[in-house]
């Protein structure tokens, strides 16, 4: 009888408790290309935390498309912190889930973005199709790989970078839409996440150019050894700002606010900034940025707030149902 009761209790325990309930674990829900960054950062932070005499901490990671990850948190994935691809997805945590306050982005420095990136081209070694700038991508016969902006945050930055270039080049929204429509006509595979697109381009060798996060492009180059790929920096791109936030409702329930806040603050520390830069994210810290200056090429960067009036305007205009992206696909 007692054995049976014990077995039952053990089973119930296995079923209904998650380790995440304990105070010294932290769940960071992030987007696709940050796997390597946070692998390194997590162990650095754990050491830092222990060195401060706060004990051991286990950091759990979940990665996926940025929109999917935000949706999971809204549906009850108990993230202590979210580190997503764009502010628009974290806004949904407030709008749909009431998990964070509306002013979440002003709680941390630099609009809650400890590191930035941009969108560059990854092409085959020797650049056989001679792709130098956005205009070359719509030349006949060029196949472009980019993920679906409906599900991938990186793809939304890709889309807006292309739009920003075309608008500057041709002068109007109509012309920009024409350009982007043609661009997406030349996309043979539309993966749901940035990492999926990279796999399609690098491993399955589909397409002539991959529109990628700068960090993702560098990483692909590093993983692959630099024999088959090279990076092309266009004349203009977008400053991609992936923000971070503490999920208030979850940390209050779990009593992990101090830990979660310290975790995010550590991203801004010199150590955190250096790890970001080592993983090819552009650091905010001027000193660290100077150290890594030659790693990151200089180019003209527009911002989401400057060129598109922020995500609150860009998201519904371009990516909601019936928005510009849908019109492009209906035109096919």
């Amino acid at each position: 009888m007692s054995i049976r009761r014990f077995a039952f209790a053990a089973l119930a325990g296995a079923l209904f408790t998650t380790q995440a309930l304990a105070a010294d674990t932290l769940l960071n829900v992030s987007y696709d290309p940050t796997r390597e960054l946070y692998q390194e950062f997590n162990s650095a932070f754990a050491q830092h935390w222990k060195a401060q005499g706060k004990g051991d901490v286990t950091i759990q990671q979940s990665h996926g498309g940025s929109g999917k990850q935000a949706r999971s948190v809204i549906d009850g994935l108990r993230a202590d912190v979210v580190t997503l691809a764009l502010a628009g997805d974290i806004d949904e945590l407030h709008r749909l889930g009431k998990l964070i306050p509306a002013d979440w982005q002003s709680r941390l420095p630099d609009a809650s973005t400890p590191y930035t990136s941009t969108i560059v081209f990854l092409v085959r070694k020797g650049n056989p199709k001679g792709l130098k700038d956005w205009g070359d991508l719509v030349k006949p016969g060029v196949e472009v790989i980019t993920p679906n902006p409906k599900t991938s945050g990186g793809a939304r930055w890709n889309f807006l970078a292309a739009w920003a270039w075309a608008k500057k080049q041709y002068g109007s929204d109509e012309k920009a839409q024409e350009y982007v429509t043609q661009l997406y006509k030349q996309v043979p595979v539309l993966d749901t996440g940035a990492r999926g697109s990279t796999i399609t381009f690098v491993n399955n060798r589909i397409g002539d150019v991959l529109l990628a996060w700068e960090n993702e492009a560098f990483l692909a180059l590093k993983e692959e050894g630099g024999d088959a790929l090279e990076i092309v920096v266009p004349s203009l791109s977008i400053l991609a700002e992936p923000p971070v936030a503490v999920v208030d409702r979850n940390v209050e329930r779990k009593g992990t606010r101090e830990l979660a806040t310290a975790y995010l603050n550590h991203l801004y520390s010199e150590e955190g900034q250096r790890i970001a830069a080592k993983n090819f994210y552009r650091p905010r810290n001027a000193k660290v940025a100077a150290e890594f200056a030659e790693q990151f090429p200089q180019l003209e960067l527009v911002t989401i707030d400057g060129a598109f009036n922020g995500w609150k305007e860009a998201q519904p205009k371009f990516f909601s149902d019936g928005g510009v992206f849908d019109q492009i696909y209906q035109a096919h």
Binding site: A14, F16, T18, I74, D75, G76, L96
Partner: peptide, 27 residues
């Protein structure tokens, strides 16, 4: 199961109050 037990789902609030986690966990 997301519709039933998700935070936005039918039993979402109730589960949250009782601190029972079903989806995004082993159950």
């Amino acid at each position: 199961y997301v519709l039933l037990f998700g935070a936005q789902g039918l039993f979402g609030e109730w589960l949250l109050e009782h601190d029972i986690q079903i989806i995004f966990a082993v159950p």
